[in-house]
């Protein structure tokens, strides 16, 4: 008894299975990619080096849908209405110049998401308590949710959308896929921006609270596991991908391949994919 009643009935009445047409309309993926002007072998290249599983049809579909929605000309959207306290601000985002009028209250996060179609940066808490909105401004990782867009005059902003070089993923992005450094993926853009900036901080020899000897002269650091963990603690992950995030960052930081650990009980060796 007490079998959980966690099923469809409990959560609303699902439509009668028989009434749902099996031949549902779907977006024609090929057509979308055609419309985007991505043809033949370049489709594969366009998505290239993204997964050791290779290119999947799913990947194409999802990307095609996403790209089709995105603004193609890179222009910012104008504000929907006239604003009481408008501030004109110009900044560089992922290498391209952007100029826009913003409400003085608008954060950089909302400006990216609402006005520049850069929805990769996420709003996890909007109060500087989760790190999902992390972007890199003038070389430093910062929280875009606590940064007013108006203060970004002349700033150089890099978001998750700007990390790949052309078709090639940033090594941290590739390592996150390889080590499964996420599940739901919502904190991931922030985690990755944070990790990318962290590498530079380590090169500079910046200290952290767990640095053993704070007085030692700053020099390029080989970060211990706990050093990486502490420096990544400003990016919360509710799915609990931390150990995989650690491995991904460590692999890029050290240049040494990190094991991916799981075992099956009948085999004595850790399986490495």
């Amino acid at each position: 008894m007490n079998e959980e009643k966690f099923d469809l009935e409990d959560c609303g009445n699902p439509p009668d299975m028989a009434t749902v047409e099996s031949d549902v309309l779907t977006v024609d993926e090929e057509k979308l990619l055609d419309e985007l002007g991505i043809f033949g072998e370049s489709r594969r290249k366009f998505l290239g080096q993204v997964s050791t599983a290779g290119l999947s049809v799913l990947a194409m579909q999802l990307l095609a849908e996403n790209e089709a929605f995105a603004a193609s000309n890179g222009d910012v959207k104008t504000a929907a209405v006239k604003l009481e306290n408008a501030v004109k601000v110009s900044m560089k985002v992922n290498g391209s110049a952007k100029s826009l009028d913003v409400d003085s209250r608008m954060t950089l996060l909302d400006a990216l998401r609402e006005r520049m179609d850069l929805t990769g940066s996420k709003k996890g808490c909007d109060h500087g308590q989760c790190g999902a909105c992390t972007v890199i401004v003038d070389g430093q990782r910062v929280l875009s949710c606590l940064t007013l867009a108006a203060t970004c005059e002349g700033a150089d902003v890099t978001t998750i959308e700007g990390l790949a070089t052309g078709e090639k993923l940033h090594p941290v992005q590739a390592a996150f896929i390889k080590h499964d450094g996420f599940q739901c993926g919502y904190c991931t853009p922030g985690q990755i921006c944070s990790a990318v900036a962290l590498m530079e901080e380590a090169k500079r020899g910046d200290a952290s609270y767990v640095t053993e000897n704070i007085q030692a002269k700053a020099r390029s650091l080989n970060l211990s596991d706990d050093e990486i963990r502490e420096r990544m603690s400003g990016n919360l992950c509710r799915c609990g991908a931390y150990p995989n995030i650690l491995r991904a960052i460590k692999e890029v930081h050290t240049g040494k391949e990190q094991a991916q650990g799981w075992k099956f009980s009948e085999s004595s060796e850790t399986e490495v994919a």
């Binding site: 500087g128 790190g131 992390t134 430093q140 990782r141 910062v142 929280l143 606590l146 940064t147 944070s194 900036a197 962290l198 901080e201 200290a207 952290s208 609270y209 640095t211 704070i214 007085q215 420096r231 603690s233 400003g234 990016n235």
Partner: peptide, 19 residues
């Protein structure tokens, strides 16, 4: 002033300390 360095680094997160 290592005490001050430690205290600052004990607060908030890397991103917030950058701001």
């Amino acid at each position: 002033l290592p005490l001050l360095s430690q205290a600052i680094l004990a607060g908030a997160s890397g991103q917030i300390r950058n701001m």
